[in-house]
Design a binder for these strands. Structure first.
Lengths: 117, 117
DNA sequence: TGCACGTGCTAACTTCTGTTGGCATGTGCT
DNA sequence: AGCACATGCCAACAGAAGTTAGCACGTGCA
């Protein structure tokens, strides 16, 4: 989740996760200000159910992380915060990542093995 | 298409475009080696129709560019090559981009404009 | 003429994703 | 008890995206 070359699949996942206005806003809202689900949903003006889905995707991609906490009045609240990450997208970086993509399904011919850097 | 802060919508488009194994491979195949559609399709092992769709997306996102050329034997061939681009993905960059996202759909109420920060 | 090779397009199917709404759980306070 | 607020999950729909197959057009060459 750093600047080191990500695998193709990781890259695809991160990009797919970030390629969504809602999730971009979620990340933006979380920068420098951790928050819990319900409140975040209110601030962003979207439903909790929807936000949860997006948060889950972000978390799965490793872009945000969550931890459950108990507020003073005993309520369980799930706080989210953004992780530090840096992804640099250039043709070369993509070319490198593409070589580590898992094979769609088929051939993977023989003379091919030296694949992994 | 450079390192300068992209708008939210641009970012979303680029990320969505790159968030696909096939398109990653296409970009990879095009790095340092321009190619024409039919040949590229053969090399990648995918159908021309499919490749065309992906190439179009890549082109729309500004990641590759095409120009029609006539081969020596008079055949019209469409050559593609990758554009130079650099996108740096960090929480902060995303936060900045998110602010320039076009409104999802509805209200865009009046007192809303100075919204952020 | 017929084949090989290049281009482009579109209709149709399948699969994935986003989104909503409802219902369940739990707590503290009046 | 009833309300407000927190969490979680799931079924269902709508729409977007990926993919295939087939057709059109063009050229050069045996």
């Amino acid at each position: 989740m750093n600047d080191a070359a990500p695998t193709g699949d990781e890259l695809v996942q991160v990009l797919a996760t970030l390629a969504n206005p809602h999730r971009l806003r979620v990340v933006a809202a979380l920068v420098g200000e951790r928050n819990y689900v319900s409140r975040l949903a209110r601030e962003l003006g979207i439903s909790r159910a929807l936000l949860q889905v997006h948060l889950r995707k972000l978390e799965t991609a490793g872009l945000v992380s969550a931890h459950l906490e108990l507020s003073e009045d005993g309520k369980a609240m799930k706080f989210y915060e953004v992780n530090r990450f840096v992804f640099t997208l250039t043709p070369e970086a993509i070319a490198a990542a593409a070589q580590t993509l898992t094979i769609p399904d088929a051939v993977q011919r023989d003379g091919e093995e030296g694949s992994r850097s």
